[in-house]
Every structure is written in structure tokens, then in C-alpha cells.
């Protein structure tokens, strides 16, 4: 986990740092977790270049560590370069009203619809790192349809946590969404658990939304908080 250690090395003992979506995704990819292809664009030209290499439709999001903005704002899918060029400056202006520090945007390929899941890790004062799992942000936060496990998770824990929420009937597929192979979700959760377990500097992690397809789980948006402890 070289990338993560590099970041932690530069932190002061006792300090925390919130990583942006692209920074978080880079670290996840190193751990074998699949993320949606994401590029960083400082200018509209960079955005256009990235979009043509990713392929349309794409969406634009602010790179921000303001927690209120993470996972909450972003553009609608942009289908063409013309659309992207007209939207880019508007978004930069818009986002500046929330966070004047925002200069760059992320360009991500818009993934096809899949079954939505939300995975988080947070630190419980008694039991240490805890992983939460639910079928999408709204299910988790509004209906409180969420399951928890103490990290690290075993294969059995992963098998059971995805079946615990009521939303697990989605495992049979829904409407036009095909039923995923449960093992692809279990494997992803195991990787997330291993990632947190092998990096005690990870204080919290939020992967939401992630889309689940028949043979793959893709993280669409991600954020992470690091903490540098004494001796860490």
C-alpha cells in the first residue's frame, strides 16, 4: 500500500485528512477494487480530452473534500463534447458558491444502471472498524435497512451481510436489472475489509454509489478519511 503510506507520511501525528474521490479511487484500485474510470480536468479542454478517451456519456463532479458535497452533487449525463463544453464553466461557477477552493472537476464515464449498493467503514469506540452494507444510500439512510459487521470480515460474514438487509431481494434481479452473482459482491466486500484491516490509518471510508452487475461491482463514488496515530 505504497500510495497510502506516502500520504500518511506527510501527515502530522494526530491529524486527519479527507481524501477526494479520485485520490480514494487510486488507493482502492491498488487493492483490486474496481472503480469507474475517472479523470481529473483542470480546464474544459482537459475535460473534453478525457471524455473522448473515456467515451460518452460522461458526468462531471467537483473535486472537494467538503463532506456535504461528497456524493451529493454532480452533473447529469453529458452525451456530447458540445454539451460538455457548455456545462463545464457553469458547474465550476456553481460549485464555487459551495466551496471556493474548487478548481478542478472529475470526468467519469457514466456506468450503465445496476443494482445500487452502499458500503461504508467507520470506527466504533468499542469494536474498532465496522463495515456497513445496504442496497443504496436511500435504503441505508432513510429506511435504515443496513447490516453491520466488525472488521475484518470472513467469507462467511460477507456471505451473510449481503443477505441481511430487506433489500437483499434485489439479489434475484429487479425490473431490467439482472441478478448478480452474489460471490462478486462478497469478493468486493472481502477486499474492502482487507484494505481497511491492513491500513489502520483508514478512519472511515464511503463507497456510494456502487453498481452491481451480473459479474462485477463498480465503485462510482468514493471518499476516505485518514488519521495518523502515534506510532502509525
Amino acid at each position: 500500500m505504497k500510495g497510502l503510506n506516502k500520504i500518511v507520511d506527510k501527515m502530522d501525528i494526530g491529524s486527519t485528512r479527507v481524501l477526494s474521490d479520485p485520490e480514494t479511487k487510486d488507493l482502492l484500485v491498488d487493492s483490486g477494487i474496481v472503480v469507474v474510470e475517472t479523470a481529473v480536468a483542470n480546464t474544459v479542454d482537459e475535460a473534453a480530452k478525457a471524455a473522448s478517451s473515456l467515451g460518452y456519456p460522461v458526468s462531471l463532479r467537483p473535486i472537494s473534500v467538503e463532506s456535504s458535497l461528497i456524493n451529493t452533487v454532480g452533473s447529469f449525463p453529458l452525451g456530447s463534447e458540445a454539451q460538455l463544453r457548455s456545462t463545464f464553466p457553469e458547474l465550476v461557477k456553481d460549485y464555487a458558491s459551495w466551496d471556493p477552493e474548487i478548481k478542478a472537476l472529475t470526468v467519469t464515464k457514466v456506468p450503465p444502471s445496476g443494482i445500487e449498493i452502499m458500503v461504508t467503514v467507520f470506527r466504533d469506540p468499542l469494536f474498532g472498524s465496522v463495515l456497513s452494507f445496504g442496497y443504496g444510500k436511500m435504503a441505508v439512510e432513510v429506511w435504515e435497512d443496513v447490516a453491520y459487521r466488525i472488521a475484518p470480515l470472513t467469507e462467511k460474514d460477507c456471505r451473510l451481510i449481503i443477505r441481511e438487509p430487506k433489500g437483499s431481494s434485489l439479489l434475484n434481479g429487479y425490473d431490467t436489472l439482472s441478478a448478480p452473482r452474489p460471490t462478486v459482491m462478497e469478493e468486493t466486500l472481502l477486499r474492502v475489509s482487507d484494505f481497511v484491516d491492513s491500513n489502520p490509518n483508514v478512519e472511515s471510508l464511503c463507497l456510494s454509489p456502487c453498481f452491481v452487475y451480473r459479474d462485477e461491482v463498480i465503485v462510482v463514488e468514493a471518499s476516505m478519511t485518514l488519521i495518523k496515530r502515534e506510532g502509525g
Binding site: P125, L126, F127, V146, I150, D157
Partner: peptide
């Protein structure tokens, strides 16, 4: 001191 009931329950199950 107490931790959330949902986490306690999950811990017991696990």
C-alpha cells in the same frame, strides 16, 4: 460506556 445497539446486535450475530 455504551456503543450503539445496532452495532452490539451485529457483533452478537457475527
Amino acid at each position: 460506556f455504551t456503543t450503539g445497539p445496532a452495532i452490539w446486535d451485529a457483533m452478537l450475530v457475527q
